[in-house]
Amino acid sequence: MDSRLLDRLILELNQSSPQILTYAEAHKLQNLDVPTCLRMAELQTNLLGKGEEACHQLYRLLHLHAEAVYFSLPTRTPHPGNTEQAHKSPPERFVLNNRGPWFFVSCFGLAVGGALLYYYSDGALWDGARAVLAYTALGFSKPATSLLLLYAENMGKNH
Rank of each mutant, 00 (worst) to 15 (best):
C107G: 06
R76P: 02
S141P: 05
W126T: 11
N97Q: 12
T136V: 05
M40E: 09
L29G: 01
A137F: 07
P91A: 11
R76Q: 13
L96T: 12
L43A: 02
Y135D: 07
E67D: 15
N14W: 03
N97Y: 00
L21T: 00
L148A: 08
H79L: 14
Y70G: 01
G123W: 06
H159K: 10
F71S: 15
H27Q: 15
H87C: 02
P80S: 05
L148S: 04
E67V: 15
L138F: 14
A24H: 12
V69C: 08
P35A: 10
K157S: 10
Y119G: 13
P74D: 08
V69A: 12
S3Q: 15
F108H: 02
C37I: 10
V95E: 05
I20C: 03
E92P: 00
E92S: 12
V95D: 13
I10Y: 03
L110Y: 07
L13Q: 02
P80R: 10
D2V: 06
V34H: 05
L47K: 00
A115Q: 03
R8H: 09
Y151W: 15
F108M: 03
W102M: 05
F94M: 15
G123V: 11
Y118P: 01
T145K: 11
R76M: 06
E25M: 00
E84Y: 06
E42I: 00
N158C: 05
E53K: 08
L62I: 04
E25D: 10
W102I: 04
E67S: 10
L32E: 11
D33N: 12
L147G: 13
S106Y: 11
I10F: 01
G113W: 06
A86N: 09
L110D: 02
Q19F: 05
P143L: 06
M1R: 13
N98M: 11
L11K: 02
H27R: 11
T75A: 14
V112R: 07
H56L: 14
H27F: 05
K28N: 06
T136G: 14
H63S: 15
G81F: 03
A152N: 01
L96K: 13
L117N: 11
D127M: 10
T75M: 14
E12Y: 01
A66S: 13
M40W: 06
I10K: 00
N14R: 05
P80E: 07
L150S: 04
V112K: 06
N46W: 04
V105N: 02
A54W: 09
